[in-house]
Simulated scan of single mutants.
Amino acid sequence: MVSRRQFVLSSLLVAAGARAQELARAGWRGNGIAPEAWWLHASMIRCAQDVTFADAVKMLDRMSDVGADSILLPDLEPTAKQPYAERFGTEEELDALLREMSARRMHLLLHMPLQRAISNAGEVRFWMSRGVAGIDLGTLGSGDMDAVRQLRASLDHYPGHRILLARTAGQEAQAVASGSRRRGSASSDPITLHILSPQDTESGVRHTGAVNAVEIAAMPVSDEKAESAAATLPAAVPYVRSLFPLLLASGAPILDSHLLTSDLGRESVQQVLAFRNTHAVVRDGSVVVLATAQPSLRAWILRAKGARGSLLLAANDGTTPATLHLTAALASNGFRNVYLRPLMRSDHGMGAVNVEMGTLPPGAAIVAEILH
């Protein structure tokens, strides 16, 4: 039985959806979402729960600075009166956000739990008619796939590519991700982007058959004074450690909005994304996780066909200096008598690095070319 609250909300959503259809004229995402698979090359900014529609508008210039083209809003917590809580802003502010994003060819997505999306068709209709380009369903299991297929079928009635994002946990991850749905593919599981955690990416987890996105949280800089000094060097990227998953994963990045609030964070994102998009080994190479002698030292090889142009990523996640001692690990992967030429680093060091005796300060990280 439908409760009075559900009936009132459904009626309001239908009325709001009809108005949204009227507003879906040229320039609105309601009829302008690109027919191509824009999500394969998207860079998304995930907003915190306390964001407002007005805050999101102010964020657009900073997004353009780093090449991000999509905003992922939190759960907007619909009420009996309207499809979003009052604290997020007014309808006029929502309209302003949609218009400004449309003018910049950006996409708006939002979080909506699967069960609510299935049981409240009016809410989904409202946001799809307003031109929302996708829904983050949160964490799912293999038992949720029938419900997601139902939702996918509903979204397919709207023009353009409307996507579904999801993350999976534990042993179900491979089962769900292996059937992730690409537009036009024969796959039966309708998740367009499977969200990987940085921990998954850094441990070398690969979800065969999935179209992945990697989610990056904002991390504090370890030593503000040292990092500010390092930022004056050409290769200095203070936040490079927290952005390593962007270099290790091939999927679309989902970045915490707090990464864009400081100049250092914004510059770091800009440099790493540019490096990721232009360096052939990062784009097309394979990833090898290296065994290290110290638990606090993490290291990876990004390797192209053959050894030429390969990169080493190394990070000291501990509280004391770490010596690399990577000679044996590199030799086992075919790299002998080599040294490292840093391309990006978070500390103020300069010059070539010895693969055996080189050291990284606490919290420091480097991206280096492996040279003979």
Rank of each mutant, 00 (worst) to 15 (best):
233 L>K: 13
230 A>L: 06
234 P>Y: 10
251 G>W: 00
263 D>S: 14
250 S>K: 15
223 D>V: 02
219 M>R: 15
234 P>M: 06
228 S>N: 12
243 L>P: 04
251 G>I: 06
231 A>P: 05
258 H>Y: 08
246 L>E: 02
242 S>E: 06
255 L>P: 00
263 D>F: 11
243 L>C: 09
227 E>L: 09
248 L>C: 05
256 D>Y: 08
233 L>M: 15
223 D>Y: 00
262 S>D: 11
247 L>Y: 09
243 L>Q: 03
222 S>L: 12
241 R>Y: 06
245 P>E: 08
242 S>R: 05
222 S>N: 13
235 A>L: 08
241 R>G: 07
225 K>W: 10
241 R>Q: 12
227 E>Y: 06
235 A>H: 13
235 A>Q: 13
261 T>W: 08
242 S>I: 01
253 P>L: 06
231 A>H: 12
263 D>E: 15
258 H>A: 15
256 D>A: 01
262 S>F: 01
248 L>R: 05
242 S>T: 10
254 I>P: 02
258 H>I: 01
223 D>N: 12
261 T>E: 15
218 A>G: 10
261 T>K: 15
258 H>W: 08
239 Y>V: 05
232 T>P: 01
224 E>D: 11
232 T>S: 13
233 L>S: 10
245 P>I: 05
240 V>R: 00
256 D>T: 05
255 L>G: 00
262 S>G: 08
234 P>R: 13
250 S>R: 14
245 P>S: 07
232 T>Y: 04
243 L>E: 00
254 I>Q: 09
256 D>N: 06
218 A>C: 12
236 A>R: 04
235 A>P: 00
228 S>H: 13
263 D>Y: 11
239 Y>D: 11
250 S>N: 11
254 I>S: 04
258 H>D: 13
249 A>G: 03
253 P>F: 07
223 D>C: 05
230 A>W: 04
240 V>H: 00
245 P>M: 08
239 Y>S: 14
246 L>C: 10
221 V>F: 04
241 R>K: 12
260 L>G: 04
249 A>S: 15
248 L>A: 05
246 L>R: 02
237 V>N: 05
246 L>M: 09
262 S>A: 09
253 P>T: 05
233 L>P: 00
255 L>Y: 00
247 L>T: 03
227 E>Q: 13
251 G>R: 07
237 V>L: 03
252 A>Q: 03
244 F>A: 10
247 L>F: 09
254 I>F: 09
254 I>L: 14
226 A>M: 07
258 H>V: 10
243 L>N: 01
244 F>W: 11
257 S>F: 07
223 D>P: 05
229 A>V: 11
226 A>W: 03
250 S>A: 13
237 V>H: 09
246 L>S: 03
252 A>S: 14
223 D>K: 04
261 T>N: 12
243 L>S: 07
246 L>V: 03
248 L>N: 02
257 S>G: 10
222 S>Q: 14
229 A>Y: 04
243 L>D: 02
249 A>T: 01
250 S>Q: 12
229 A>L: 12
233 L>Q: 14
